[in-house]
Computed example of a mutant assay.
Amino acid sequence: MLGSRDCGGDAGAAVADGSAGDGGAAGASPAPARPRWAPSDDYEYQPLRIDPRVSRSAAASMLAIRAEFAGWELARVLKFPDGTRRVWLRRKRSPALLPDLIP
């Protein structure tokens, strides 16, 4: 039976004696997990919405042009039931483009 196999004795023993599952030093809480695609300070992001009437090949061509001439890369794509695509592009931040560093 599947349920009886999931409740093995070895996993419970490791947690009970404190050798696993405590996240490190006593009293220290682990850092909150960030989503894998979450924005960071190293990249700048550009969100796009692609209309459902735009074909897949036309959308791919549009994104390829942005990648080649503006340095963007694909970070994430979501496709909704109505056919709309939500796209996030990213590129490395350049120190020359940061507003704080311009004299």
Rank of each mutant, 00 (worst) to 15 (best):
M1G: 15
M1H: 13
L2H: 14
S4L: 09
R5C: 03
C7Q: 11
C7K: 10
G8Q: 07
G9F: 09
D10C: 06
D10Q: 05
A11Q: 11
A13E: 13
V15E: 13
V15N: 08
G18P: 04
D22W: 11
A25P: 05
A25D: 13
A26L: 11
A26W: 12
A28L: 10
P30Q: 09
P32R: 05
R34Y: 02
P35I: 00
R36M: 07
R36N: 10
R36V: 14
P39V: 01
P39I: 00
S40N: 11
S40Q: 06
D41A: 14
E44Y: 02
Y45C: 06
Y45W: 01
Q46W: 12
R49I: 10
D51K: 04
D51N: 14
V54G: 03
S55P: 03
S57V: 08
S57A: 12
A60T: 13
A60I: 00
M62I: 00
L63F: 01
I65P: 00
I65W: 03
R66C: 03
A67K: 03
E68F: 09
F69Q: 13
A70Y: 12
A70T: 02
G71Y: 09
E73A: 08
L74M: 07
A75G: 05
A75M: 00
R76S: 14
V77G: 10
T84D: 02
V87G: 03
W88T: 10
L89W: 04
R91L: 03
R91Q: 00
K92G: 06
R93Y: 01
P95Y: 09
A96W: 09
A96M: 09
L98N: 08
P99F: 04
L101K: 08
L101I: 00
I102E: 11
P103T: 09
P103Y: 04
P103R: 05
